[in-house]
């Protein structure tokens, strides 16, 4: 799965006993990831993203100080897999719910997990104003370009030409409008400290997503403003593809939604002063 290094538990290195062969743990379930099978469809990216978050919660020591906010959509059940306190939000309102949590619990870490229908359609006002206020939140925005849970309908992020159950002839700009690059839209707001987009297309890219997520979490932990990582993910069932086909298709998705760090105002600030 991910090629990221794991912290090696001290107890796993029985060096005190020279007779035993030294064993090193290269891969294990993070404490923050519950020991259960997910309900996600075979090949779905949510499981990968859950694991990245859980690894980072372990690494950054956030397991006992995090309040997470769940969206509506397939990933509402994230609360069954990531071991923190969770609050379930109405569809699209997660950034507002998280704002209420954030302002009344200044010493806690607040994670927001949203899909693209949740964040970029019904919850557009909530995400824009949470970002504009510079709320100290970390938003994980999973973009698979479709409404997965309800059966694969067109989302505002659906690619032009892409077929869905509510755009059976393919998305056509004159009829359905254009895909929304919402992370770029958010990034122009001064309240947004960090905005980046990654993809699950291959293991090295997943490693980069983890780096982005870590940066976004550190922004919140160091008193920065709003941070968001958009992750291009797949939906093999909704896209009517096999799992490998859907992963390969992410290359085409990235043509509409370019990969990379869009803004990092914590890094940019000192550089601007030097210039």
């Amino acid at each position: 799965m991910t090629l990221t290094e794991q912290p090696i538990a001290a107890s796993a290195q029985p060096e005190a006993n020279p007779a035993a062969a030294p064993l090193r743990i290269l891969y294990q379930r993070p404490d923050a990831l519950m020991e259960k099978s997910t309900h996600y469809c075979p090949g779905c990216g949510h499981g990968i993203i859950h694991r990245l978050i859980a690894e980072l919660f372990d690494e950054l020591g956030l397991n006992e100080k995090t309040i997470s906010v769940a969206p509506v959509g397939c990933s509402v059940f994230a609360y069954d897999y990531i071991r923190t306190d969770w609050i379930e939000s109405p569809h699209g309102r997660a950034p507002a719910v998280a704002t209420g949590v954030r302002r009344t619990n200044p010493d806690k870490f607040v994670l927001v997990y949203q899909g693209d229908g949740d964040l970029a359609a019904i919850g557009t006002a909530e995400i824009i104003h949470a970002a504009a206020r510079g709320e100290r939140l970390t938003v994980v925005f999973v973009n698979n370009g479709i409404y997965g849970m309800t059966g694969g309908q067109m989302a505002p992020t659906t690619l032009l030409g892409q077929k869905s159950t509510s755009s059976p002839l393919g998305r056509e700009s004159g009829e359905h409008g254009f895909p929304i690059p919402i992370t770029e839209m958010l990034a122009i707001l001064p309240g947004v400290t960090y905005a980046a987009r990654g993809t699950l297309i291959e293991p090295s890219a997943i490693g980069k997503v983890k780096t982005m997520l870590k940066r976004a979490m550190q922004v919140q932990m160091t008193g920065g403003g709003f941070s968001i990582v958009e992750i291009l993910s797949n939906c093999p069932v909704g896209w009517n593809m096999t799992a490998p086909e859907s992963m390969a298709h992410l290359a085409q998705v990235a043509e509409t939604y370019p990969i990379g760090v869009i803004v990092d105002r914590q890094k940019a600030a000192p550089a601007a002063r030097e210039g």
Binding site: I87, R93, G100, V101, A125
Partner: peptide, 24 residues
């Protein structure tokens, strides 16, 4: 204490939902 003028009534009551769920 906390005062927020929200972006809408939807925003306001959902902020309340979040704060209330933490016991405030």
């Amino acid at each position: 204490r906390v005062f927020i003028q929200a972006e809408s009534e939807l925003g306001a009551i959902n902020m309340a939902l979040g704060a209330a769920a933490t016991g405030k």
